Amino acid sequence: MKLKQPNDFSNGTNKIVDITGPFRDYLMDFEILKLNAGDTYTNDQPLERAYLIIYGGIQVTFNGQTETMYRENYYDHNPVTLQLAPNTSVDITCTTDNTEIAIFKTENPDMTHNVLRRAEDTVVEERGKGFMNEAGTRITRTIIDKSIDPLSNLMLGEDMHYPGKWAGFPSHHHEQPEIYFYKFHPVNKKGFGLLKLGDDAVLLEENDTVLIPPNMDHPQVAAPGYAMYFIFAIRHLEGNPYIKPTFVEEHLWVEQPDAKLWPDH
């Protein structure tokens, strides 16, 4: 299901998915926080929370420490993310105009630690290189998964998706619910992509959110001329966490290994 953002985000908190609302089966809160220099924000909810800077700068105070977080843009720079345990109070003061932060929250009574995950902590992979005539080449940035943080209930990351290229293809699915959030570069609101969600084709445009139901295939492609960026957030299920496939495992889904889809060895 696509949740269309009809206008630019308002200053302050823009709620998109409510963990107690009509999409509660996705087990996550998702909102976009827009701030200008001097704006403040405070939160101490009893949820695991991840504050991912899309672009801009903030000063954060949590658990007795104060840190600066800055990201010039999402297409050239790795993400900076503050991950907080339930009930940890955070105070944010914005340091640059037009700052945008993606916030994901979920229940997690077992998490007790707080981590500032800097750009250099991101696991960066060039996926798709050498396969399918480079049709699926993309940059994947993993911020949190079970190998990085075994106690987190979130898998969180980004794809920076070359123009005309595919992601999630060959088609794949998983049992855990997932949220995608999209942007396009250059930012002139003319870029778009397409997502195959089950039997439906979903048009993807600037600031769209898509909810991926469990066990539904979801390959996607960027239109030529525009790089497609998306944040992916997966909620691990109790006793059934999502385990990211390796690069080789991802391409073992191809059923015709003799069709020149494989790299030279």
Rank of each mutant, 00 (worst) to 15 (best):
G239E: 02
G225Q: 12
L156P: 04
D110L: 14
F247L: 14
T246L: 04
S147H: 03
P170D: 12
N73G: 10
Y51G: 03
L47V: 08
M216T: 15
Q5R: 14
D29G: 09
A135V: 02
M1I: 06
H172I: 12
L197Y: 10
I234G: 08
K165R: 13
E158G: 06
R138S: 05
Y242Q: 12
N133W: 09
I101C: 00
L261Q: 10
I16L: 02
V123N: 06
K34M: 12
I53P: 05
F232G: 07
H77R: 03
V202L: 10
T112P: 03
T95R: 11
I54Y: 13
A37V: 07
I103K: 04
I54N: 13
D39W: 07
L82V: 08
D44S: 15
R138F: 08
V210A: 03
P150R: 05
Q256M: 11
V115K: 14
L252F: 14
L156G: 02
I212L: 00
E206F: 12
D97E: 11
T209N: 04
L156C: 04
L27W: 05
D258A: 13
P177S: 07
H77A: 08
R117C: 01
E158D: 05
K15M: 13
T137R: 09
T13R: 13
D29P: 06
V90R: 08
Q256W: 01
Q5S: 14
F9M: 08
A167F: 09
N11V: 10
N108V: 10
L47Y: 15
Q45V: 07
K2C: 01
I58Q: 02
G193Q: 05
T61A: 12
P257G: 03
L27F: 02
W253H: 15
C94Y: 06
K260E: 15
M1L: 05
R118N: 06
V202D: 11
Q45W: 00
K4H: 14
M228H: 08
V248C: 02
D208H: 13
A37W: 10
Y229H: 15
L261I: 14
Y242W: 14
N63P: 03
A167H: 06
L3M: 09
T93R: 14
E126H: 11
G38I: 02
D199N: 09
T142K: 01
T40N: 00
H161P: 03
D39G: 05
L52V: 10
L261P: 13
H173R: 14
D208F: 08
P6D: 12
L252W: 13
K183P: 05
N36P: 04
T61M: 03
G198N: 06
N114D: 15
T106M: 12
E206I: 11
Q220G: 00
Q256V: 01
T112C: 04
N153Q: 06
E125W: 09
P46W: 01
T142G: 01
Q5L: 03
Q59H: 05
G57R: 13
V115M: 10
N114E: 11
P219D: 01
D97M: 02
Q220S: 11
A119P: 05
I212P: 05
N153M: 06
T88A: 00
A135E: 13
H172T: 06
G64C: 13
I103T: 07
T81E: 07
E126C: 12
N98P: 05
Y75V: 12
I243K: 06
K15G: 04
N87I: 07
L35Y: 07
V115F: 07
E238M: 12
